[in-house]
C-alpha cells in the first residue's frame, strides 16, 4: 500500500478543508440549539442560499440593476451574504419560530425541515441541479502555496485560515465576554435572565440571525470550491448532523473540534480505504452513540 507520509498529510489537509465547513456549520447549529432549543433543519438550505447570494450577486445583480459591468465581488459577498441570510433568519424567527416557542421542540424541527424543502424546491425549479461554477474567486487567492509536503491551493489555505478565525472568534465571544455570558445564562435559564432586566426575546432573534449568518458565510467560502447547486446544502447537512451527534449538542468548542477532527478522519480514510471515506463519519456516529450517547463533548442528561 502506497501510504507515504506525504500522501497521508495531503489527504488530511484536504480533509481539514472539509472539516472547517463541518465546524462552521455545526457551530451555528450548536449556538442556535443552545438558546432556542431547536434543531435548525433549514441550516443547509441557508448555507446554499449564502452561496447563491455570492453567485447571483456576481452574475445577475449588475444586469438586474441595469449596469451589466457591475459584479458583487467575492469580498463584498463574504459580508453581504451573511447579512442577507441573517436578515432572513431574523424574519423566520420573528414570524414563525417565535410562535412555536411554547410548544414541543419537535414543532420547530418540523417547521425548519419544511422551510428547507421549500427553499431547496424553489431553487431546484429555477437553477441547474448539477450546479454552476462561481467565477468570482479573487485573483489574489489563485495559485498554489508550497507547504513543504505538498502544493496546496492558495484559496483553500485562505478558507481554512478564515474559518478557524471565525470559529475561534465565536468561541471567544461566547465563552469569554460579557455578551457571551448573557448568551450562556440565557441557555441555562432564560426566565431568570429576563428577570435581570435583559431583553431575552431580542437576544434569541439576533442569535438565530447570527447562527444562520455563519451558514451563509460558509456558503460563500464554498462557492469557488464546490459547484453552487440547489442540493449542496442538503448533501452537506446530513454529514454535519452526524458531526453534531458525535460532538454532542450544544457544546461550542465540542462542535468546532469535532467538525475539524472528522474532516481529517474522512481525509485519512481516503488514503487507507477510499470507498469508506463517505461512510466513516456515520460509522463513528454509531459507535459514539453506543458508547457515549450524549456525544464526545455533550453533557450527560
Amino acid at each position: 500500500m502506497g501510504m507515504s507520509v506525504q500522501t497521508v498529510l495531503s489527504q488530511v489537509m484536504l480533509g481539514l478543508n472539509n472539516g472547517v465547513f463541518y465546524a462552521i456549520l455545526s457551530l451555528g447549529l450548536a449556538v442556535i440549539f443552545g438558546l432556542l432549543n431547536i434543531v435548525n433543519f433549514v441550516h443547509g438550505a441557508l448555507y446554499m442560499l449564502g452561496a447563491y447570494v455570492a453567485l447571483l450577486g456576481f452574475t445577475m445583480l449588475g444586469p438586474l440593476l441595469g449596469k451589466p459591468d457591475f459584479h458583487l465581488n467575492y469580498w463584498a459577498a463574504l459580508i453581504v451574504a451573511p447579512l442577507v441570510v441573517g436578515a432572513l433568519g431574523v424574519l423566520i424567527e420573528k414570524t414563525m419560530l417565535r410562535r412555536l416557542r411554547k410548544f414541543d421542540h419537535l414543532y420547530g424541527l418540523l417547521l425548519t425541515f419544511g422551510l428547507a424543502l421549500i427553499i431547496q424546491g424553489v431553487f431546484t425549479n429555477y437553477f441547474n441541479v448539477s450546479g454552476d461554477a462561481y467565477d468570482g474567486k479573487p485573483e489574489s487567492l489563485s495559485g498554489v502555496v508550497d507547504l513543504g509536503f505538498m502544493l496546496f491551493p492558495k484559496y483553500r489555505v485562505w478558507v481554512i485560515g478564515i474559518s478557524l478565525a471565525v470559529c475561534f472568534g465565536t468561541w471567544f465571544v461566547i465563552e469569554r465576554t460579557k455578551l457571551g455570558s448573557y448568551l450562556r445564562a440565557g441557555t441555562e435559564n432564560p426566565e431568570l435572565v429576563k428577570a435581570f432586566g435583559i431583553n431575552v426575546p431580542l437576544m434569541i432573534t439576533l442569535t438565530y440571525g447570527f447562527g444562520v449568518g455563519l451558514a451563509a458565510f460558509a456558503g460563500v467560502l464554498a462557492a469557488p470550491i464546490y459547484s453552487v447547486s440547489p442540493v449542496m446544502g442538503s448533501e452537506m447537512i446530513i454529514t454535519v448532523f452526524a458531526v453534531v451527534v458525535i460532538g454532542g449538542m450544544g457544546s461550542i468548542m465540542g462542535s468546532i473540534l469535532t467538525g475539524l477532527l472528522l474532516g481529517m478522519v474522512e481525509g485519512f480514510t481516503k488514503v487507507v480505504y477510499a470507498p469508506a471515506s463517505s461512510t466513516v463519519i456515520f460509522l463513528i456516529m454509531v459507535l459514539v452513540l453506543l458508547v457515549k450517547p450524549a456525544g464526545l463533548f455533550g453533557k450527560e442528561a
Binding site: K178, S181, Y182, R184, A185, T187, E188, V193, F196, G197, I198
Partner: peptide, 11 residues
C-alpha cells in the same frame, strides 16, 4: 456555566 464574577455582573 458562568464564573462567580460573571454571575455577579449579569443583572
Amino acid at each position: 456555566s458562568l464564573t462567580v464574577e460573571e454571575n455577579l455582573m449579569l443583572p
